[in-house]
Computed example of a mutant assay.
Amino acid sequence: MIILNNALGFRLKTLQATTSTLLRGGRGNMGTPTPMQPEKSLILYEHEACPYSRRIREAMTHLNLDYESRPSPHKGHVYRDELKELAGKVQVPFLIDENTGDKILDSQAIIDHLFTNYSKKATTPEKYQKPNGDNATLINKATSAASMMRGIKSDYPKKNKARGKPDKPLHLYGFEASPFCRLVREKLCVLEVGYINHNVAREQIEDIGAFGIRLNLGQYKPIKGGKRERIMNEVMDGKLQFPYLIDPNTDTKMFESRDIINYLDKNYG
C-alpha cells in the first residue's frame, strides 16, 4: 500500500508509526545517558519492518549505542547481495562487531552480545530476553503490519543498485520509538541508503513529550554530562529535535521528518 507524502498521507503514516510504538509498550524510548560506545562502529544489516530487527534497535536505544545501518529490504541488492556473501544467507538482522570479531545472525544472540559487551551489568534484562507465548507473537506481527502497509520492499531496486552506496554515509539522529524517526528510517530502508544511526535516547522523565511539548514545562535541561547534552551542544547548536539528518555528500543538515523524506526521494529516489 503506497501512501503519498502529501499532508493527509503524512498524517496517516504518522498515525500508523505511532501505533507501532504504542503496541511495543514504549520500548525504544529510554536509554542510558552514558553509553559504552565501542571504538569501531557496530554494523547492522536489517530492514525496518522486520520484527527481529526492531528488537535489536530497541536494545540499541536502551544502551544508547550508535551503529551503521545497512538497509536490506526485500527485492533490494545494494546491501542484500553482500549480506548473503557475509552471512551465508539472506537473513536479517545480522550484526558485525569488529571490536570483538563476532558476526551474529540470531536476534536474541545479538541482543545478548550487546548487553554482555556494552552494558555496565553485562547481563540481558528480562524484558529484552526472547519473548515467549502467543501474545508476544501477536504483538510482533501487529507492530510489523503497520510498517508493511507502507512497504517493506525496495522502491526502485534497479535504480538503487545502479546508484550504489553514497560516497559518504548519511547521519540520522533520533531514537527507535519516535514515529517521526521511524518514517525517515523506512524511507532510507526502501531506498537502500546506508547511514549511521545516532541513538539519542530519552534519559530522564523531563525528556518525555510529543510534538515539541515536554513534561517539563520550564526551560529544558538535559542531564549534565549525558549524551543528549553533548549532541545538543556539539551537533545541533543548542537545539534538540528529532529526526535530524546530516548528508555530508551534499553538505545538507535538516530537521522535520516530512522535509527529510522529500529530500531523500529527490536525491536518492
Rank of each mutant, 00 (worst) to 15 (best):
A210V: 11
R55W: 01
L12T: 07
V235L: 14
A49C: 13
R70E: 01
I104V: 09
A142K: 07
N262D: 09
L138T: 12
K13F: 02
E229C: 05
D237M: 10
A145L: 15
L138A: 15
S69G: 11
L86S: 07
S178N: 08
A210N: 14
R214Y: 09
A109V: 06
L44P: 00
Q241W: 10
N262M: 05
L245S: 00
T100F: 08
D66W: 10
C181L: 06
F10K: 14
N132I: 14
F10Y: 15
G212I: 11
Y45R: 01
R24G: 04
I205P: 05
I96E: 02
C50R: 02
S69R: 02
K168A: 15
H171W: 08
Y156Q: 12
K224F: 06
M236H: 04
K224M: 05
N199T: 10
D237H: 12
T124M: 03
L65T: 00
V78P: 01
E85I: 11
L15R: 12
I43R: 06
L42H: 00
M60T: 03
Y263T: 02
N29E: 14
S147E: 04
P166V: 07
T116S: 13
N160K: 05
Q108H: 14
T116Y: 05
Y195S: 00
N216R: 09
K253P: 00
R55D: 02
M149Y: 10
A142V: 06
P248A: 12
L217E: 14
P248R: 12
E58T: 06
H198L: 10
M232G: 02
K187Y: 06
E234C: 11
G25W: 04
R163Q: 10
K127E: 15
K253I: 04
L83W: 04
L4Y: 11
S107V: 06
R185S: 02
K253F: 04
K266I: 08
P157Q: 10
A7E: 12
A201D: 01
L240R: 03
D167K: 15
Q129C: 15
H113W: 13
P38E: 08
T137E: 11
F115T: 03
I196Y: 02
K89M: 09
E186Y: 05
L217Y: 10
C50N: 05
Y263S: 03
S144V: 05
Y52A: 05
N29Y: 09
A146F: 06
S144K: 04
K161I: 05
N5K: 10
R70Q: 07
L8G: 04
I213S: 09
P93Y: 01
K159I: 11
T18C: 07
D106Y: 07
E256I: 05
M149F: 14
Q108P: 06
K158H: 11
K103Y: 08
D259H: 12
I56K: 00
I2P: 05
N160A: 15
K168T: 13
L170N: 00
E126D: 13
K127F: 15
M236R: 04
F94T: 01
E98F: 03
T34L: 07
I261R: 00
S41C: 12
K266N: 09
E176W: 03
H77S: 14
A109E: 15
A210Q: 14
K75N: 13
F10G: 03
H198S: 08
I110E: 00
E206S: 15
H113E: 12
T21Q: 09
G76N: 03
L138S: 11
G28K: 01
G151Y: 02
G28R: 00
I96F: 01
I139W: 07
P73T: 02
E82H: 06
Y263M: 03
E68Y: 14
Q204F: 04
